[in-house]
Structure formats: C-alpha cells, structure tokens
C-alpha cells in the first residue's frame, strides 16, 4: 500500500518536475528575478512561521514524553484516591497536580431549594458528572459552583488542558448544566524522521491502558438550609451533612 502510494507520488513528482523544469514559458517565469523573488519570499515566509511557532503555548504543543504504563498505573491510583476521598465526604488533595479547577460560578439564590438539571445528549448509564454539595455557613444568598477535572490521558498524551467545562446557567430555582465536552482531537508530529541517533517517538501503537479519563465533578457550596435536588436523577449525588 505504502509502496503503491509512493509510486503514485513519484509519478506526480515527475509530472510536476517536467512541467516546471522543462516548460519554456514556466522556466522563464521561474528563473531570473522572478525565481529569486519566489525563493526569497518563500524562505522569509517560512522563517516568520518558524519564529511564530516558538510562541505557541506549551500546553497545546506538548514536548513531554508520553506517559508510560507505570506512570499510568500510578495515575489511576491517584484518580481512585481522589474519588474515594470525595465519596467519603472529603475534598481531595492534589489540586494542580492530579485535580484541576476548570471553572467556577457564583449565582445569587433567593429560594430555599435548588434543582440541578442536566441538559445533554447523554444516553445510557454514564453520568454526565457527579455533583458534591457542601453546606457552608456564611454563604447566605449565593451559591458557588466549581467544576473540577482530574488529569486525563489519551494513549499517554496528557490532554487535560483541552477539556472544556460545562456551561452552567442559573434560571430561578434551576441550575442548568450543559455538557460541551467533546473528544479532544490530538495529534503527534514526528519531526525526527532521518536520524536514528535521537530519541524517537517509538511505537505509536499505544496500549489501551495508556488512556485514562480523569474524574470530573461539580463541587457546590450552598448556604445551610438550602435543599438541593436533581431533576432527572441521572447523576450520582452526594450531599454532605
């Protein structure tokens, strides 16, 4: 398949080469001052793009080596510990390392009741996200919602920074949560193709274990005495005493 493709490319190349190198009219256009202008223009353009490429943020352009199986095992242990801490009513540690605050919202509340409604295309058993509610004194008249996401990997590639938080809107008694997460489009570019003397990307056929989607949840702080419920019962819901 690859050989056939290369042959096709080879033929295309020959056609192009013959077109550009032998066509008298094109040859006249591509030599002399025109040729020099094209050449200089191309080099300058590529130089500018190259310089601009160094300004790309480190999160979008990941240079860290892909996670190994051992690192992923450790990561999954950490994610499990986060989940267990939450289920036991404790806010988990590891913020900024294995757990990240994606976004937070503060809404005024005038009622003694708040209903969470999840507006998403989710079907099946998988919950959109968990909601953990903490009743806090001193937060009268407002509700604070925070969206957290655990570190996530796809085939060893840390894609946590591409995860989008849901849209959270306040509508009277209802808090409407709209999921806008989509599967991140990830790529790996093999720039080192000629040299075997450098660290290569290695096997790109990664094992399934190298994919791990971190936990995600809404952490809600409400004033004491406010009743929190869910509209459809589609999420697991833990209310702290």
């Amino acid at each position: 398949m690859i050989v056939a493709l290369l042959w096709i490319l080879f033929l295309i190349l020959i056609v192009f080469y013959l077109l550009f190198a032998f066509s008298k009219r094109l040859k006249d256009k591509l030599t002399g001052k025109n040729g020099a202008r094209i050449l200089i223009g191309y080099v300058v353009l590529l130089l500018l793009i190259t310089i601009s490429s160094f300004g790309i943020d480190n999160e979008s352009l990941q240079r860290k080596p892909l996670a190994t199986v051992d690192e992923m095992k450790q990561h999954e242990k950490e994610q499990l510990a986060l989940y267990q801490a939450l289920e036991n009513g404790n806010f988990p540690s590891g913020l900024g390392h294995t757990l990240f605050l994606k976004k937070s919202w503060i809404f005024p509340i005038h009622e003694k009741k708040i209903v969470f409604a999840f507006d998403s295309d989710h079907n099946g058993d998988q919950a959109l996200t968990n909601v953990y509610v903490e009743r806090k004194p001193g937060t009268a008249g407002k509700i604070e919602i925070q969206y957290y996401h655990g570190r996530s990997f796809q085939e060893g590639f840390d894609y946590t920074h591409t995860i989008m938080s849901p849209i959270v809107q306040h509508d009277g008694q209802r808090i409407i949560v709209t999921d806008q997460n989509k599967t991140a489009k990830l790529g790996a570019l093999n720039e080192v193709v000629a040299s075997r003397f450098l660290q290569n990307m290695g096997d790109t056929e990664h094992e399934v274990e190298l994919t791990s989607h971190g936990i995600s949840f809404l952490y809600v702080k409400v004033p004491k005495g406010v009743k929190v419920s869910e509209e459809k019962g589609e999420v697991s819901f833990v209310t702290k005493p």
């Binding site: 979008s60 352009l61 990941q62 590639f157 489009k185 990830l186 570019l189 080192v192 450098l198």
Partner: peptide, 9 residues
C-alpha cells in the same frame, strides 16, 4: 488538532 505532541529535542 486541539493539541499536538512533538518530540522533546
């Protein structure tokens, strides 16, 4: 793509 992995060279 949303994010790109390149070798750390």
């Amino acid at each position: 793509v949303d994010a790109l992995y390149v070798q750390d060279i």
